[in-house]
Simulated scan of single mutants.
Amino acid sequence: MSSDNVVLIGEAAEELRDEFLHWQCRLRQMAMREQAGRPSRGMRPKVETKQGEELSPGIVVLIHKTDSEDSTALFRHQVLKTQDPVERWEKAVDHLAAAYFQRHREFSDTLTALFGPGHGLPDHLLNHRHVVLEFYEFSRRYRLPCTVAELAESDAVFQHTYWHNRLFNPNLPAGVRILAFQPDWSHASVINEEEEE
């Protein structure tokens, strides 16, 4: 499954999607429990063109529950409840380290990334429309061809991304932009590098 020329159909594509989301949930739970919420390498994919040109060495991406309204409301409440950034951070880590990432099947496969105003990368990615996100951690490498789109502020996934980021960064400026990455699982691949040796 390591070749970019392999096309996965039906169950095989669904299995890869399921495996990736399970892996992401595990990485994120570990980051919350062991790294105080700091994103690990596997949460910061490299971004390339389909031809392999690097567009970014790494962007932090989020995963979202399919039904994210309750989570968004909770994140927003926690942000507005206290002006103490340390207390806010600790509450966020406690919540996300508990059962939040326990059930990977509750998560959508849409990934998002937040960028500050004036950052040039979002326009560059949108101009390409299709990019490859390469995730790597613990000898496992996923390559996900994705369609890129910008989310409107009114979008539920925009709001979820925004309030999640506010939990960890109280100084988010006005005018942030949020991009969504929708994987094409039929052309995605995984490499377990231990198996290759």
Score class of each variant (00 low, 15 high):
131 V>C: 05
16 L>H: 02
57 P>D: 06
86 V>K: 15
84 D>Y: 00
44 R>G: 02
110 T>Y: 07
157 V>Q: 15
63 I>C: 09
161 T>Q: 11
179 L>F: 01
48 E>Y: 12
35 Q>L: 07
106 E>D: 13
38 R>W: 11
69 E>L: 12
80 L>E: 10
115 F>W: 00
45 P>S: 02
170 P>A: 06
143 R>H: 09
168 F>N: 00
144 L>S: 04
140 R>M: 07
1 M>I: 10
9 I>W: 14
197 E>Q: 06
142 Y>W: 09
87 E>Y: 03
8 L>F: 04
128 H>L: 15
172 L>D: 06
59 I>M: 03
174 A>C: 03
99 A>M: 08
11 E>M: 13
18 D>C: 04
24 Q>A: 01
102 Q>I: 05
35 Q>S: 10
2 S>V: 14
99 A>C: 03
51 Q>M: 10
74 L>D: 09
98 A>P: 01
175 G>L: 03
148 V>N: 05
66 T>W: 05
111 L>W: 01
72 T>K: 01
112 T>K: 04
92 A>L: 00
184 D>T: 11
190 V>E: 11
133 L>S: 03
81 K>F: 09
138 F>R: 15
65 K>R: 15
117 P>M: 01
126 L>N: 06
127 N>R: 14
187 H>C: 10
10 G>W: 07
189 S>P: 00
158 F>E: 01
172 L>P: 05
34 E>M: 05
12 A>R: 15
97 A>R: 09
151 L>W: 10
178 I>L: 06
35 Q>M: 08
